[in-house]
């Protein structure tokens, strides 16, 4: 057991116009997760504390918050890896609704702009559209994205320009552009090479640093940039 101090940035638009800091001392087991601490606070100390969580197993992406200055999943962060004082803030750059809950609609709007679905009008084979292991490997990492929003929220390019698609949406574009079963790669590429798209990525690597699924997002975006040069410049008829 150890006593952890949870230092939480709270905001209730109905009560105050500015955020405030609240401190909670919580008894935690080393094997517990940050999310367990938040649940203890909400259940036993202050029922008004608001945060998102759903799966509690690092797969739904709803519990992403800024943990000691770095975005991550509350349900995937173990107490044993944390200092005694834990500072929690809502994700940067999205509008705060209440406490640790942010409005993710700007994030999903960007996602919708890259045609985040498989396009293939050919009649599907009897069971499924097969892929070679090599082809599957190209998109293996990008498929593991759980869309928690940590990356886009950590991106200085996004802080500077909220119209920028952001790493998450661009990674989603990668996921389908490099999917050999997809037939709309060209069209999708067009949707990301405008002024507020791919070229706003300055290879800052914040997204890679925070990604809870350890996806090399910047590397994927670099592949998209090279593909754009290849398709739009070198192979142009």
């Amino acid at each position: 057991m150890k006593t952890c101090t949870f230092n939480i940035k709270r905001f209730d638009p109905e009560k105050a116009s500015t955020p405030r800091w609240a401190k909670f001392s919580v008894e935690m087991e080393q094997t517990e997760r940050l999310l367990d601490g938040l649940i203890k606070i909400k259940d036993n100390m202050d029922g008004t504390l608001t945060f998102r969580r759903s799966c509690a197993h690092g797969i739904c992406g709803s519990c992403a918050v800024k943990i000691n200055g770095k975005n991550g999943l509350a349900c995937q962060t173990l107490i044993k890896d944390m200092p005694d004082t834990i500072t929690l803030e809502p994700l940067e750059a999205y509008p705060v609704i209440k406490d640790l809950v942010v409005d993710m609609s700007p994030f999903f709007e960007k996602n919708d702009k890259v045609m985040p679905y498989l396009v293939n009008d050919e009649t599907p084979p009897d069971r499924e559209r097969l892929q070679s292991p090599e082809d599957q490997h190209k998109i293996l990492q990008s498929i593991t994205c759980i869309m928690c929003g940590s990356c886009t929220s950590s991106c200085p390019g996004y802080w500077a320009n909220k119209d920028y698609l952001g790493p998450s949406a661009l990674l989603k574009a990668y996921r389908f552009i490099f999917d050999t079963r997809d037939n709309a790669s060209g069209e999708r590429l067009e949707k990301i090479i405008h002024n507020n798209g791919l070229w706003r990525c300055r290879s800052i690597y914040n997204c890679v640093e925070v990604c809870p699924k350890e996806i090399d997002i910047t590397g994927h975006l670099s592949k998209l940039k090279r593909l754009a040069v290849k398709k739009k410049l070198l192979e142009r008829k």
């Binding site: 067009e190 090479i193 405008h194 002024n195 070229w199 940039k225 754009a228 040069v229 739009k232 410049l233």
Partner: peptide
């Protein structure tokens, strides 16, 4: 739109 797109590609390259 196409010209601007290609301009961006060239700039990065």
């Amino acid at each position: 739109k196409r010209i601007i797109e290609i301009k961006r590609v060239i700039e990065w390259f």
